[in-house]
Design a protein around this nucleic acid. Structure first.
Lengths: 352, 352
DNA sequence: GCGGATTACTGACCCGCTTTACTAAAGCGC
DNA sequence: GCGCTTTAGTAAAGCGGGTCAGTAATCCGC
């Protein structure tokens, strides 16, 4: 016969004080409470395994001790790599260390206005947005209302929007530098359309590497994909054919998205180009998929769990209203060298 | 200048009724409220983009409209496959359809008693437990207190514990049947120690297939791994060597865990056994990792998103106190044939 | 045109906790 | 032992919404 949950009043009764005093003790208020009383209350609370009722506390304080994660779309999950789960692992860990819970808020809400009302109406104290796709109205509205939002692994242009991101430009530089060192001179870059901050940044890093290497003539061959689209096999086939038919043909490919990189690598052989013999491929993010695929793919990785942890810290600072040193916290990217890159064949080099 | 959130009182004022009436309308109580009044209230609510304050409502009703997911350990996330995220995708989708939010409850809690107090004290109305590892005290205590718990993709022996699981026995049967059809006669099964319901069930399915094929003599060669341990390379090496040194040596391997299957397959070549030429390998779960690895692995898969959705439905039924037809909802497993299996070589067959 | 039922609606309290404003008692200088 | 301060503690008012018990107005039969 499970006993009723202990309430503050029960703790107070047991300690022989009023609820007010018990509340003061448990919330660490230093209002001249003698050690003996303090101890009695703490003992009573421990004895009853007391924890404040979340809803009651929220109602009184206006704080939920919850942080939300806004999922832009179902694909955040089903994107079949571990990008999301690795960030999430960091978020959950760090949140728990701060005695916060994590609430998942779905994109399947009937409309963004009710999601908005829920978020600002006691669902969470602040939200994290993890996405490669930008949200239309929700985030700007939250920002306009002064609600704490932190973007994870991407950025919005809005001045009020804080983010944790990695140094995409340096990442692009790393990728290009690696290919240049292997002897490649004709490099193609696949990246997303305008909306994605990281696409342009990575491309810019590649350009910088080429310039530093004295390759500032033509620059890399580039091809955008449409923002907001999910990768599909047709896109992969088209792009693989584009690689084959480019003249002069690139000997190496930098693809700013891991799944797309994988799809392209799988398509290239069917156009007569082997990886890495004819075309080297570098991807980004370096999760499971890059590591286990065949051939394992050289990839520029992000420290995903750390990014998740930092995002929680930044969001909590925003919620508390603490000044934060920067609007964007940056992490370095790291190059993981695997089998998808090799030196270009002599013929290809000569042709350039 | 963002306006204050609309409260029930604001809606009531706008509609020219009392908060009580507004509450009745919005909660669908049929207490003889004429259509005209009803409409006025609904219009007012829509006009103000009203949503009830979550905490206030919870406090009054004792319901949170949240379902919790208890993460047994950080590895639930970082296990580097998409097992967890695919289930989670189904859970989040279905929860949103039911106008419920999903709360992630971490294993990093200082101790299970405070997690328990949080859960029963307004964190969620019921919890889902997704895990291959059993939890020690938390779940039994929740069950004893009559708190709704549903286990996802595994089961507890407790009579009060409801679960959504797949038909592991049939899955084991499928795996073995496939190998038998290819001509294998000497099959080894790797499975977890006692605690994991699915391990024993899958093994039992294999046994049944062998018996049906008239192979009921020796039965499969079996080897347990320790419950609750995470796969590590050392385990893989030991096990690979065990396979090589078994006499007579098995020509096929059924491994009840996907990551372990992958690790073994990666180790086998170093012991001189090729996959699938010398040893065929079948894994379970069939997520990304089985699909993309080299060679792609034949695997018995679970319909993970559907399992997640069904788990939400079952949990909500439990929360409502609705009678449910069964304590365990079962889903069929499906065999995905890939390149890790082939017919055994004649020599190996002859030796048996 | 009176009693009883029905319709339409509301006042007031409760959920459990925080917090402000307040008080009773002790301490202290003189 | 009088006033002032400090110490130790409390009563009561919310936070926003749900809900029971109740009421005023209308309807109906006769």
């Amino acid at each position: 016969m499970p006993t009723r949950r202990a309430r503050l009043k029960d703790v107070a009764d047991r300690a022989g004080v009023s609820p007010t005093t018990a509340s003061f003790v448990l919330n660490g208020r230093t209002d001249a409470i003698p050690e003996s009383t303090r101890q009695r209350v703490l003992d009573a609370a421990a004895g009853l395994n007391y924890r404040p009722h979340a809803a009651a506390r929220s109602l009184a304080t206006g704080r939920t001790r919850r942080i939300g994660i806004v999922l832009n779309q179902p694909e955040s999950f089903s994107t079949r790599d571990t990008f999301f789960s690795e960030i999430l692992a960091g978020i959950v860990e760090r949140s728990t260390e701060h005695d916060r819970n994590v609430l998942l808020l779905s994109a399947h809400y009937p409309d963004w206005r009710s999601l908005y009302a829920d978020i600002t109406g006691g669902a969470a104290d602040g939200v994290l947005q993890i996405s490669r796709f930008l949200h239309d109205k929700l985030t700007p509205t939250l920002l306009a209302a002064g609600f704490p939002v932190v973007c994870v692994s991407f950025q919005l242009e809005d001045e009020r929007c804080f983010s944790v991101d990695c140094d995409n430009s340096a990442g692009g530089y790393l990728a290009a530098r690696h290919l240049l060192d292997l002897g490649h001179r004709r490099i193609a870059v696949l990246y997303p359309g305008e909306g994605m901050s990281w696409g342009a940044e990575r491309l810019q890093g590649v350009r910088r590497a080429l310039a530093d290497a004295g390759q500032n003539g033509a620059g890399p061959l580039t091809r955008e994909w449409e923002e907001r689209t999910l990768p599909d096999p047709e896109w992969a086939h088209h792009t693989a054919r584009w690689v084959r038919d480019s003249d002069p043909r690139p000997t190496a490919l930098i693809c700013c998205d891991e799944i797309r990189a994988r799809m392209i690598a799988e398509c290239l052989p069917s156009t007569g180009l082997r990886v890495p013999e004819d075309v080297s491929v570098v991807s980004f993010n370096s999760t499971e998929i890059s590591e286990r695929c065949n051939p394992p793919m050289t990839s520029v990785g992000q420290p995903l769990p750390q990014i998740g942890r930092a995002a929680v810290d930044l969001l909590l600072a925003r919620i508390r209203g603490t000044e934060t040193p920067e609007r964007v916290v940056r992490f370095p990217m790291q190059l993981h060298i695997r089998a998808s890159c090799s030196a270009p064949r002599a013929a290809a080099v000569a042709r350039c």
